[in-house]
């Protein structure tokens, strides 16, 4: 495994798997911003109103089910056990997990290493991985090198495109400071997406990772993604009232109404 690239800044996203409801807002916000962005120069749709609509997206949301993780197990069983037509054992409840995925702006971005034209590049100052459409020859090789499915070819223009980390927002001095954030982060209704500098241990995102822990995708491949997926928390459990006992009716005879005046 190669050693991680060190850029002075490592800009990226922290995505909270514990909070994401899988609403696709970030995916559409991304599509929307980039469809009109000068940096991305359009994001195509194919067969938009036809049989099999498709198109290029930089951020896609997938849903998974996780079962058998003791952290999320419970006594309840989806009702299958009690079905009269047979007892179907279901050990534990599974947990649905929504996973948004866009470019991770990897420290060790093989997508850049393999690119023959130099169209793919990783910015030394902040680690953002970008494609220069003016140089790309559309060989798809970088997409092959990406384990995370972050790159999609613009078939109309014949050039590779990918998440820009909204470089044309985060550095745009014409935007009010609060809006110098990726479109997907601003849109996310549950606040499951956070943008920041992972190289700075004091940053919002580094603090979150320190507090919550993260899980890395395909860690063994050694890409050292900058984006972090905040792990799912153990379910919050609430204490129960203990100092109570059943039998109200029996006690009613003795119960004295407390005078509470209006």
């Amino acid at each position: 495994m190669s050693t991680a690239n060190q850029t002075p800044k490592k800009l990226g996203l922290a995505i909270d798997l514990d909070t994401c409801v899988g609403c696709h807002a970030c995916a559409v916000a991304c599509k929307e911003w980039n469809a009109g962005s000068k940096m991305t120069n359009g994001l195509p749709d194919y067969d938009a109103y036809g049989k099999a609509p498709s198109g290029a997206w930089f951020n896609r949301i997938r849903n998974y089910e996780l079962s058998g993780d003791p952290k999320f197990s419970s006594a309840n069983t989806c009702g299958a056990d009690s079905h009269p037509q047979g007892h179907i054992p279901l050990s534990t409840l599974s947990k649905t997990v929504n996973v948004p995925m866009s470019c991770m702006h990897c420290d060790d971005a093989d997508c850049v290493t393999v690119c023959p034209t130099g169209a793919s590049y990783k910015r030394a100052e902040d680690g953002i991985v970008l494609v220069d459409p003016a140089k790309c020859m559309g060989c798809n090789y970088c997409a092959w090198a990406c384990p995370y499915g972050a790159r999609e070819l613009d078939e109309d223009q014949g050039v590779m495109k990918k998440c820009t980390l909204c470089v044309d927002r985060i550095y745009d001095q014409a935007l009010p400071e609060a809006e110098r954030q990726p479109a997907c982060v601003l849109a996310c209704p549950t606040n499951a997406r956070h943008f920041g500098d992972f190289a700075d241990p004091q940053s919002n995102v580094s603090q979150m990772v320190a507090m919550r822990g993260k899980q890395e995708m395909f860690p063994a491949l050694g890409y050292n993604p900058v984006n972090a997926y905040l792990s799912m928390r153990a379910p919050v459990s609430a204490p129960q009232v203990l100092d109570s006992k059943p039998g109200l009716l029996a006690r009613l005879a003795q119960r004295v109404n407390k005078a509470i005046s209006l």
Partner: peptide, 10 residues
């Protein structure tokens, strides 16, 4: 191989 960095990006 380490990823080449771009010191003079577009």
């Amino acid at each position: 191989m380490t990823t080449p960095l771009s010191f003079n990006p577009p």
